[in-house]
Computed example of a mutant assay.
Amino acid sequence: MPSRIPPLAITAYTATSALGRGRRAHVEALRDRRTGLRDNDFTAAPLACAIGRVDGLEAQPLPAEFAEHDSRNNRLAWLGLGADGFLDAARAAIDRHGASRVALLVGTSTASIGSTEQAHLALEDGRFAPAFASPALHTPHSLGLFLEHVLGTRGPCSTIATACSSSAKIFAQGERLIRLGIVDAAILAGVDTLCGSVLFGFNALELVAPEACRPFDVARRGISIGEAAGFALLERDGAGAPRLLGYGESSDAHHMSTPHPHGLGARLALADAFARAGVGAHEVDYVNLHGTATVKNDEVEAALLADSFPPTTRASSTKGWTGHTLGAAGILEAVITLLAIEHGFVPGTLNTDTRDPLCDARLALANEERAVRVALSNSFGFGGNNCTLAFGCAA
C-alpha cells in the first residue's frame, strides 16, 4: 500500500458546463435541481438523445493572438479560464513561483478532433482548407499547446488521455511533481467538447440513452454526453483553501469498454486513495460516484459502494445535471465535490426514481443539507483506467 502524503491546497478552482459558467452557476443549478441536459441539437444527422451543451461556442472565436489554436475545444477552455478569476489566479501563481516552476497538466479524451472532422468535410483539392491548416489543431496535445501559449508556463506540460479518468489523473500527476520538488505549483485543466465521432461512436456501442440519463435507476438505458471545462490550481500552502488529501489509480485492463465484473481496479484505486489520504471509509461524508447510467458501470460501482462504506455515507451521481463530459468528467466532478464541501450539501441523483436493487439508501436521490468534511470523487474510464480522488475541507 502507498504511504500517506502531505495534503495540498487547491487555491483556485472553477468549472464551465451545460449548467453555466463558474462555481455560483453550478451551485444554483444543483440546489434548484435544474438540469443542463436538452434534446440533441448538435449533430446535423439525427440522433435521438440528450446532450449537455455549452451555448455560444460557435459564435466566439479565440482572440486574434491565439487564432492558430481556434477550435471548439480551445474556445471552451478560453471561456472556462475566465470564470471565477481563474486566469488571474493562475498568472499570479506563475509570478510567485516562476514560469519554469509551474506545471501545466491537461486531461482530455478528444482534444480538438471536432476541428479535424470539419477539416475532412471541407477538403480543398484533397487538402485541408487554410482555416484548418494549423498543425496545432490536429494533435492530442492541442489543448496543452493552447494553454501554454495563453499562460506562458515553462514547466512540465503534459496531456493525459485515459478516457473518462483523464482529468482526475492530472490531480495525481500534479501531486507527484510537487512532492518530488520538480515544481512548486500545478495548473490542472480538463476540457472536452461535443463532436460527431464521440456521439455516434458511443451510440454505435449502444451506450447512449434516448432520453436524459438516469444513473443507478432500475430502468437506466445509457449515458448522456456533455461538454465541460474545469480548472484547478494546486500549491503546497493556501490559507482557507480546500485540500487534495490523496488519490488512487489503477488499470485493470479487463475489457476495452466494460469494467471488471468484480470492480477489482476500482477497489484498488479506492484503497490507495484511503492510504494516501490517511482516512478510513467511516470518515467519508460524501462520494461523487462515476455513475454513468450504463448497466455495467452502475452495477459494479453500486457493489463497491455497498461493500466499502458504512450506511451513514452519502453518495450520488451528478451526470443527470451535466451529462458525461468524458475527459473533463474527472475535474468537473471534482469541482462539484469541492462545492459540496464548501457549501455543506450533498447533491442528489437527478432523474433517478427507483434505485437498482444493488443500491441501497447510501445513494441520495434528493439533495441533502449536511456537513461534508471529507469527500471522494470516482472516475472510472474505458479500458479499466480508474482514479479516486480524496478531498478535505480547509485546514
Rank of each mutant, 00 (worst) to 15 (best):
F202G: 04
I225G: 07
G238I: 07
P259L: 07
P261M: 03
L207R: 07
L234P: 10
L194P: 09
D272V: 00
A266H: 09
D285C: 05
P261A: 11
G248D: 06
D237E: 14
V287A: 08
Y286F: 13
N203D: 15
A241S: 15
L207G: 01
H255A: 08
A277G: 13
I223Y: 10
E206M: 08
G230W: 08
H255I: 05
F231P: 11
F200Y: 13
G280V: 01
P242T: 06
A266V: 00
S197L: 15
A275Y: 00
V198A: 13
L234I: 11
I225C: 11
H260Q: 02
A253Y: 12
A241T: 07
R220W: 09
I225P: 09
E211Y: 13
V284F: 01
I225L: 15
P210Y: 06
E283A: 12
H254G: 10
G263S: 07
G280T: 11
G226V: 11
G196S: 14
P210W: 10
L205H: 02
M256A: 15
Y286A: 03
L270A: 02
S250P: 11
V208T: 07
S197V: 14
V208E: 06
G263N: 05
L205Q: 08
S251C: 15
L245E: 05
L270R: 01
A269V: 09
A266C: 10
E249T: 10
N203F: 01
A232R: 13
H262R: 14
V191D: 13
G265A: 01
C195I: 09
Y247P: 03
Y247V: 04
R243T: 05
G280R: 05
L234M: 11
G265S: 06
L268M: 10
G280I: 02
D237F: 00
V279E: 03
A275H: 04
P210Q: 07
H282L: 00
A277D: 04
H262G: 11
A273H: 04
G265D: 04
A271M: 00
F202K: 00
G222H: 10
E235R: 01
A253H: 12
G240I: 07
G246Q: 00
V284G: 02
V218G: 01
H262E: 15
E235S: 00
L194F: 04
G265R: 03
D192F: 11
G238T: 07
L245P: 12
L268F: 03
G246I: 08
R243F: 03
V208P: 07
A275M: 02
D252L: 05
C213H: 12
C213S: 15
A275F: 01
G196E: 15
C195A: 12
Y286S: 06
E206D: 10
A273F: 02
D192I: 14
A204I: 00
P215E: 09
G240L: 08
S224E: 10
A281V: 04
F202V: 02
D285K: 06
C195S: 15
F216D: 11
S251E: 10
D252F: 08
D285Q: 01
S224M: 10
H262Y: 02
F200E: 06
V279W: 04
S224V: 09
F274D: 00
A232C: 14
A277S: 08
V198K: 05
G226C: 10
A212M: 14
D237L: 02
A232Q: 14
A228C: 12
A275I: 04
P215Q: 12
A229M: 14
C195M: 13
V208Q: 06
F274T: 02
S197F: 14
A241F: 07
